[in-house]
Amino acid sequence: MNMPAQTPAPVPDAPLLLVEDLKCRFEVSKPFLNRVIEREPRRWLKAVDGVSFTIDRGETFALVGESGCGKSTVARLIVGLYEASDGRIVFDGRDLGQLQSEAERQRIRRRFQMIFQDPFASLNPRWRVERIIAEPIRVFGLLNDDAAIRARVGELLTQVGLSPADGRKFPHEFSGGQRQRICIARALANNPEFLVCDEPTSALDVSVQAQILNLMQDLQDELGLTYLFISHDLAVVRHMADRVGVMYLGRLVEVADSRTLFENPQHPYTRMLLATIPDIKMEGKRHEIVRGEVPNPITPPPGCTFHPRCPLVNDRCRSEAPHLLPTARGHLAACHAIEEGRQ
């Protein structure tokens, strides 16, 4: 992992996004009065607990994991929907936590966008599609006269495979896949370089998912976009990502490029996840045993949080949390067993 200098200069081959020791916790305490009466301390959920990674220009970096692993929280921290309790997010050499003025923040915001999971909730039901897509253009003041905005909206609709006439309609007149296309058109409206995609296809049917994934790939080729791709579906991640980070209970357990990760998973959790992928062509692959469930993230297990489900567990795993370290195969993995070579 690149450790940047204190004041990184925008170098062309520096990573577009650098996330360093990112932490985010949410308060899950009972209301004030109950705490006082029941003498309970405040309780926190560590949704993201020290995550570091980089994303290079033009690549697709995927975060994968089960529910509650914090992958969506990372996405929301990066686009500024949540505030980090610790750590840094550096976009193209600018520390997002250190931006001074609103104008400066707006200049950075112009350069990234987000695509959400639920195409039925991500479009304002009372707005016409053209107004939805034009919103980023208006907010960033990219175009000022209405005719130019309308022309640009038509262009964006064509780009995502819809027709300019669809702009006059309301979101409820479209199917789930078409709505997700509208979301993509909106995300492209301010010419961003970086797209954060939070489970963009998990609410869609498979045949529609294929359409959206293909569209996202085409757009990446065409516009040179960089993606942070969040998903729980390993097959989709394998298909889309150049590099993959596997998350478990708020921490990254393994980072590697997509091909090596799927061909040669190192961390026991990654291996277990891979074992859950159904053998869809029925070629008679044998599965490793999958056991247990993700524990409650409010009270995670001590030491390595995966230890209650891990086949390689020993006493060190139960007390000491592992760090992401390079492995012999060029992955980064957080596992005492790999570090010690007990496999």
Binding site: S175, V206, A210, Q217, A235, R238
Partner: peptide, 23 residues
């Protein structure tokens, strides 16, 4: 079309088969 549109591990396809349109 349905089978082709499902991403599969191990198969290095650049594009998924897609069924155009919607049900």
């Amino acid at each position: 079309g349905l089978m082709g549109s499902i991403p599969v591990l191990g198969a290095d396809v650049h594009r998924l088969v897609q069924i155009d349109g919607a049900m």
